[in-house]
């Protein structure tokens, strides 16, 4: 059965169309990344999936039911973007309270261990650092052992070390056969943690596939140099190059393999100055994908 099904879902806020005709299905048991720049409609889609936002058109099913029903029956857990924790309670009290709202929750100690909170259980939840608070919010999301776990840019407030341990916890939870949907605007996070990546931009799905397919489609880097008035023909045939853009005297190549491209570029005999190699600029890659469709 599909864990999630969006059929022709749109959402407008006045004249602004946040989501336009979204169609997608997600298999139960898979870990899926919703990848896209800010303003792509990720949070709106997640809000609709959780029943917090009503779609303007279309239908959403979660395990075959409406989002409201799925939430009411405790089949969904989520970590939303904003959300300071409620004041006056310890970590253990907050987690245990939320856990008690679900029909078939995880054991308390297991939740605390999985979220890395065992040592912080007695601390007041409103007096933790940013990364620690995110762990509590993750614990709240998994407390009810939901079949669908939704995470909206979960690592936004985390440092590198916290991120690493967070994704470790997430993968551990995914290994229990649950469905996970997470939103991110980092290709690396999607690549390392998802089985499938859905790229959204301007409220539409612009690419959908395995992390490798997506990386190939958006390219993993750009190579820029000053080309002056030398001929530009043949640049698009260099190894790895997926797109060429000339702006005045500067050439920019989008490539799946910056190393191969640079090597071949010098072999062409062109006079290459001001060479710059960069990782994928996702925003730009997304926008070009939107234009292509």
């Amino acid at each position: 059965m599909n864990a999630i099904a969006f059929t022709g879902v749109s959402k407008s806020y006045g004249p602004v169309r946040a989501v336009e005709g979204l169609d997608l299905t997600i298999d139960a048991g898979s870990t899926v990344a919703l990848l896209g720049p800010n303003g792509a409609g990720k949070s709106t889609s997640i809000g609709m999936l959780l029943g917090l936002v009503r779609p303007s058109a279309g239908e959403i099913r979660v395990f075959g039911d409406s989002p409201d029903t799925a939430v009411k029956q405790g089949r969904v857990g989520a970590m939303l973007q904003d959300g300071t924790l409620v004041p006056g309670l310890t970590v253990r009290e907050v987690v245990s309270f939320i856990r008690g709202l679900y029909p078939d929750p995880m054991p308390l100690e297991e939740i605390l261990a999985l979220a890395g909170l065992t040592d912080l259980a007695g601390r007041r939840a409103d007096r933790l650092s940013g990364g620690q608070a995110q762990r509590v919010r993750f614990a709240i999301a998994i407390a009810g052992a939901p079949r669908l776990l939704v995470l909206d840019e979960p690592t936004a407030a985390m440092d590198v070390e916290s991120r690493r341990s967070f994704w470790g916890s997430m993968r551990e939870y995914a290994a229990t056969g649950r469905t996970i949907l997470f939103a991110t605007h980092y290709l690396e996070e999607a690549d390392e943690n998802a089985d499938r990546v859905i790229v959204v931009a301007r409220g539409r799905v612009v690419a959908d596939g395995t992390p490798n397919e997506i990386k190939a489609a958006v390219g993993t880097g750009t190579v820029r140099f000053t080309i002056g008035d030398q001929p530009t023909a043949g640049l698009d045939a260099l190894p790895g190059v997926t797109g060429v853009e000339i702006r005045g005297s500067v050439a920019q190549l989008r490539t799946t393999s910056p190393d191969a491209t640079v090597q071949a570029l010098y072999a062409t005999g062109l006079r290459v100055t001001d060479l710059e190699v960069r990782g994928a600029d996702l925003e730009e890659a997304f926008l070009s994908l939107t234009h292509d469709n």
């Binding site: 917090l52 029956q73 405790g74 969904v76 939303l80 709202l101 919010r137």
Partner: peptide, 17 residues
């Protein structure tokens, strides 16, 4: 304050009505 902080939204996505 709970409305702004997102705590009420967090409760809304639990089985608590």
């Amino acid at each position: 304050a709970e409305r702004q902080s997102g705590w009420l939204r967090q409760l809304q996505i639990t089985p608590l009505r």
